[in-house]
Design a protein around this nucleic acid. Structure first.
Lengths: 225, 225
DNA sequence: AGCGATATTCAGATTATGTTCAGGGGAAAC
DNA sequence: GTTTCCCCTGAACATAATCTGAATATCGCT
């Protein structure tokens, strides 16, 4: 999952980036409203964390523009304690959740997960696909109840495919959601990771759709062959 | 486990701090309601001991603010003998337990342990994980029935990981819950302690999840590789 | 068969984690 | 009050896991 953080306080944004990366998200940082708006406009984020008190363009305006443009990603806004009115304006502009500064990182993470899974139409943090179970809150995966050891990128890949189970996902989409801005996309890393994942969770769980991409499936449902 | 004590009586707070540290908690002290509120807002405590009769902001208000902000940590309130009404107000504001001053330290400790274990979803003070047994009431640990000699910080680490068994715990989270306020977080102390713990309880009980953190497991349950 | 697409394998680079050690500080013992 | 001992800390160094990109093999379609 790829997250955009729009926050002008350098300390806080660094802290957020570290924490988010720790949990296995790809993260981009924007330091002011303009940069933030532009990134949100051009990159396919899975969620955005948006401070409302921003230089250049304020957060509410950024959010309004995004929504006016039809951007759907969930947005979690951050407000200072006393900016109650801003918070309301933020919700009116299309925010999905808010958090008052200061906050505990753990709480932010929990809310973010809630947004991500709501956006994907799930109600829990764990996704089950025919014996394969992916737990986003603890970054673990199980096959038939047995814990599987996955590396950070392997889990990102699996997690993204799991939240979009059944859909064909292109290599490009995977790269965009698993890596952040600075990544050299031509290389076969995705194939390599898919290969490694298959070896760990079972070859038949990831279908290749020639020319389009991959699809995570429940092997027991796939009879036609 | 990291505890916040909000208490204006210097003697009492010092006594509490000593007692709590003896048992292996990390402890922060706040001397008035305002400081207490701020700490509870910004640091991730596992439990709070809150005197209701406080200068600057009274205890009930502090508690209300926390709960309004969504803070979930268990709170044990302290009241003077004759403040029955305050006690009720405290419960209404979201307290989890209370104690009337004066009280015996042992009773406070016992109630605190009860709160901590309830918060973690356990029903006893000792946690068993495949032959490893962690007893929070006596701050001891056993492997296959044999008592193990752990230093204070080793036990803190183990205890925290045990109450969150199976979950991956980041270095950051460990530092935040094992140390109190004044601690320089960049250093490799966590790795050092994990190393020492492993030597004492067995290497395979603490899994490292590269890029994320550590996880305490029952080695017999982890077969998949 | 031939072509483009996907898989697999591998090695070097990179980074995260492990280990060892010495000095300081504090508590207990004397 | 002094000594002793144990533990914590932080640094330096060693090791190990993972990522990446390329080279090579295989597949599936026309």
């Amino acid at each position: 999952m790829r997250i955009l953080v729009v926050e002008d306080d350098a300390d806080l944004s660094r802290q957020l980036r570290d924490a988010l990366k720790d949990v296995g998200y790809a993260v981009d940082i924007a330091n002011d409203g303009e940069e933030g708006h532009h990134l949100g406009d051009t990159e396919p984020y899975d969620a955005v964390i948006l401070d409302l008190g921003l230089p250049v363009i304020d957060g509410v305006s950024v959010l309004q523009k995004w929504r006016a443009d039809g951007k759907k990603f969930p947005v979690l806004i951050l407000t200072a304690r006393d900016q109650w009115s801003e918070k309301v304006a933020g919700f009116d502009a299309g925010a999905d959740d808010y958090l008052t500064k200061p906050f505990h990182t753990e709480e932010l993470m929990a809310r973010l997960r809630a947004l991500l899974r709501r956006a994907a139409g799930h109600t829990t943090d764990t996704i089950d696909i025919g014996g394969l179970s992916v737990d986003n809150s603890s970054a673990r995966a199980f096959v038939d109840g047995m814990s599987i050891k996955l590396t950070s990128h392997e889990f990102r890949l699996l997690s993204y495919m799991a939240t979009h189970r059944g859909r064909v996902i292109s290599r490009t989409e995977l790269v965009e959601h698993i890596y952040d801005q600075d990544f050299d996309r031509d290389s076969n890393t995705i194939e390599v990771f898919v290969g490694r994942l298959r070896r760990k969770i079972g070859t038949d769980r990831i279908e290749t759709v020639r020319g389009l991409g991959y699809r995570l499936v429940d092997p027991s449902e796939t009879k036609a062959k």
